[in-house]
């Protein structure tokens, strides 16, 4: 019973973090209804994806065998990581101007609509990826049940696990309501970017030990850079959670550091470029306004 609670809770946290932030963020938008519909559709599609992936895992269907599966996982993780960065950039544009837009009634649905697909896919992958493992675990455990009592305790455990993870979701909703918008946005933005880096790192590690498994890379890429296992091991429950949400590694190798620094440099450059682009028309308008006067 404890195991079921643990697995369901742990596997749902990542998805609920993404969904919780998107949901809380939409609350203040005028087109929240449309957005939430896209989000919900993404969640439903995610369950579909999870079921499909489970079928390949338990060997019912063989569409994704061995090598193809690894590539699929790498692609899915990289795509999710890119979507998160894009989502943060989108939220930056719309978050900052939100108040003025509402006040002047200028909320542009047009630029938003394009991004609803981003919301959809992000929710779908978040649910589908971890969901497939949960579905398989639950299905496998379900097969072992033999008495009414065991079914009862099983479904109870699964619900408790999900309820525990939902606390995070509600905390995010409360946070969105009671903490100032600016701070809420800043904190969730950082959490999302870290999650993006964790997904990117996971993708790269699958690449390293999968398709690149037979390639001889420079020795420093395989070498441990430092060892913090005695402080916080990434095999412990907390360390493992930090690994999947924040890309924590207690024994990072050169490859990990290379991938993570690539990610962060790219993200910071993108955000910097974005804020410059964003400010350009404003300063120009101001200049125009001033010169017109």
């Amino acid at each position: 019973m404890g195991q079921t609670i643990f697995v369901v809770c742990r596997e749902s946290i990542e998805a609920l973090l993404v969904i919780g932030i998107l949901y809380a963020w939409m609350n203040d938008r005028q087109d929240a209804k449309t957005g939430k519909r896209w989000l919900f559709a993404g969640i439903v599609a995610g369950f579909g994806l999870a079921t499909l992936l489970t079928l390949t895992l338990i060997g019912v269907t063989d569409i994704l065998g061995g090598e193809a599966r690894t590539w699929f996982e790498i692609g899915m993780l990289t795509f999710a990581s890119a979507l998160i960065v894009q989502m943060v950039m989108w939220m930056r544009v719309h978050g900052r101007t939100l108040k003025q837009e509402i006040e002047s009634g200028l909320e542009t649905n047009l630029s938003g609509e394009k991004n609803w697909w981003g919301v959809f896919f992000l929710a779908m992958i978040a649910v589908g990826r971890e969901g497939s493992e949960t579905v398989m675990f639950l299905y496998g455990s379900l097969l072992q049940l033999d008495s009414f009592a065991s079914y009862m305790s099983f479904f109870m455990a699964a619900s408790i696990g999900l309820a525990l993870a939902m606390i995070l979701f509600y905390a995010l909703q409360l946070g969105g309501r009671f903490i100032s918008w600016k701070w809420f946005f800043r904190v969730t933005e950082i959490m999302l970017l870290f999650l993006g880096s964790a997904l990117f790192l996971a993708a790269s590690e699958k690449l390293l030990s999968g398709p690149l498994g037979a390639t001889e890379l420079p020795a420093w890429m395989y070498s441990n850079m430092w060892d913090m296992t005695s402080v916080l091991s990434d095999s412990s429950v907390l360390g493992n959670l930090l690994a999947s949400l924040f890309a924590y590694r207690s024994q990072p190798i050169g490859w990990d550091l290379m991938i993570l620094s690539t990610f962060w440099v790219a993200v910071l450059l993108l955000l910097k470029w974005q804020s410059r682009e964003k400010n350009k028309p404003i300063t120009q308008n101001v200049v125009n306004a001033v010169s017109n006067n």
Binding site: L57, S209, S235, R249
Partner: peptide
């Protein structure tokens, strides 16, 4: 029961 072989230190995760 299903199992998941995992190790962040070995960079593996297989269900």
């Amino acid at each position: 029961k299903p199992a998941e072989f995992e190790s962040n230190q070995l960079r593996q995760e297989k269900v």
